[in-house]
Amino acid sequence: MDAINLTESIDWKFIEHVKEESGQDPALCYQCGNCTAGCPYSHYFDYPVSQVMRLLQAGQKDTILNSKAIWLCATCETCTTRCPCEIDVAHIMDVLRIIARRENRVSEKDIKLFYDSFLDSVKKFGRIYEVGTLLSYNLRSGHLFADSDLGPKVLAHNKIHFLPKKIKGSDKVAKIFDRFQETLKKHG
């Protein structure tokens, strides 16, 4: 990590915001590194999870919200399980990702696109329609052949439906999406 001038760059509001939304107190972290040691993704993160916690204590909003780490975190719960201060670290990562999404800062566009393709299917059909989700992701991401090598395998074992099944209450599920959008608009 580069040196940070704390007097100039601490965003206190950001710290409060994360505290409130996660119900966790990042100040409890004493940088033991347990979370990073156990995190299966440390190798792939630009800032390992204990550094994200330190950056959070220092109110480094931009660095955190622009990081790849918050998108690559798989919510595997290792950090939460092992934190000696009982901080729900995975939940904090989750909240940081949510804030980044709200502010439209997405350092890992493909991951977000994949999630969005998934949720589109839920909204449309009420359930996940795997073929549709993959195709929609491939089209939107421009990775037209992502995982196409798996196709023949899945086909040979007759593991996939070619037509989506729409549930009866899919309109009710779609309403959850719509109402959620409305609350977003209401609360800005």
């Binding site: 798989a74 949510i98 999404r101 994949f114 969005d116 839920v122």
Partner: peptide
Amino acid sequence: STPAHTVDH
């Protein structure tokens, strides 16, 4: 699943 909790709890 996972995608929903990247949007909002």
